[in-house]
């Protein structure tokens, strides 16, 4: 596979530095507007507020004034009108349960799975990536090849397979299934997270201050943790944000294929709400699919945006996709 090595070439944004600056057609993205995206900006704040809200829904859903998950509202069923009413701003599903409360309580599973999965992937992939990028040579070849093998299986396919194999026990409990889904997504994200970490480590591992630390005789683990890691961290952080966004989507995909978090009235996730909402949608009640999709959309959008801001801010090059 063509591997794009990170280059350390960087065009100085100060206009007219190069000998033939006159011919450089100005890139409004490269020079002028970049400084805008480096700041958080109103959209950035919106994103943070939204993610804060999502975090609250995940950790303390009780805070939100919504009915319990098991409560049913016979009025809606009787009139076959599932639209919004007072106290139920999003209306009901086709069994007369409050939609908003399903979304709020579904947040926890989605977020736990995606955050834990990416944490797992980042710890494993990140460690190997750091080692490969720092030591280079044989160990790098071995690790990079391992990553390549991992990348040779599409992430979703790998996650599906793992989830299917490890949750093969039909009687597997809810907790176990969640764990399997988390592991499957996390494991499938190791190669990509590892490769990106490696690429970023490569660019830092030969910098002067790392060399200096080496010559002074600092111990290798110390150099990696004290000198390299802090510099690679912004890249890892921005990738983690994007990774969580992807994991949220993969959770939905797994749910649609039937190997996600088991759909149960008391254990919703955004993914299984979309999956179970399909049948309602074909009956003309699209609200559950739409609202759950919007939750996914806004969360992914916020994470992507913040990931971009972090990248712009710390000048992370996404060379090794």
């Amino acid at each position: 596979m063509p591997e794009v090595e990170p280059t350390s070439v960087k065009i100085d944004p100060a206009a007219g530095e190069g000998p033939d600056a006159a011919l450089r057609h100005d890139d409004p993205d490269g020079t002028v507007t970049l400084s805008k995206t480096k700041r958080l900006g109103p959209i950035g704040w919106l994103a943070i507020i939204w993610l804060g809200l999502v975090a609250l829904m995940a950790f303390v859903p009780q805070l939100f004034p919504v009915p319990g998950l098991t409560e049913r509202f016979p009025d809606a069923l009787r009139d076959r009108d599932f639209g919004p009413t007072a106290g139920h701003p999003l209306g009901f599903d086709t069994s007369g349960r409050d939609l908003l409360s399903k979304l709020v309580y579904g947040t926890r599973a989605s977020m736990i799975v995606s955050v834990l999965a990416v944490t797992f992937g980042l710890i494993v992939g990140g460690t190997f990536g750091l080692i490969a990028g720092y030591f280079r040579g044989k160990i790098d070849t071995v690790i990079t090849n391992a990553f390549n093998v991992g990348l040779a299986i599409p992430q979703l396919v790998l996650a599906i397979t793992l989830a299917a194999v490890f949750a093969s026990d039909a009687n597997a409990g809810y907790g176990q299934r969640v764990l399997v889904v988390t592991f499957a997504i996390g494991f499938a994200s190791i190669p990509i997270l590892g490769r990106i970490t490696r690429a970023n480590t490569l660019t830092w591992a030969n910098r002067e201050f790392v060399m200096a630390a080496k010559t002074v005789g600092a111990r290798t683990p110390r150099i990696i943790i004290r000198e390299v890691l802090p510099n690679v961290a912004p890249a890892m952080f921005s990738i983690a944000l994007l990774g969580i966004a992807i994991a949220i989507v993969v959770e939905g995909g797994l749910a649609l294929i039937g190997v996600g978090i088991p759909a149960d009235i008391t254990s919703p996730s955004w993914g299984n709400l979309i999956a179970t909402g399909r049948s309602q949608m074909l009956l003309g009640e699209a609200a559950q699919v739409m609202t759950a999709s919007l939750m996914v959309f806004f969360t992914v959008l916020s994470l992507n945006y913040l990931g971009d801001v972090v990248r712009a801010r710390f000048d992370v090059r996404d060379s090794a996709l």
Partner: peptide, 13 residues
Amino acid sequence: AIPNFVLALVLSY
């Protein structure tokens, strides 16, 4: 930020 399955569901519907 739109997962492809969401788009698929919406378009299909």
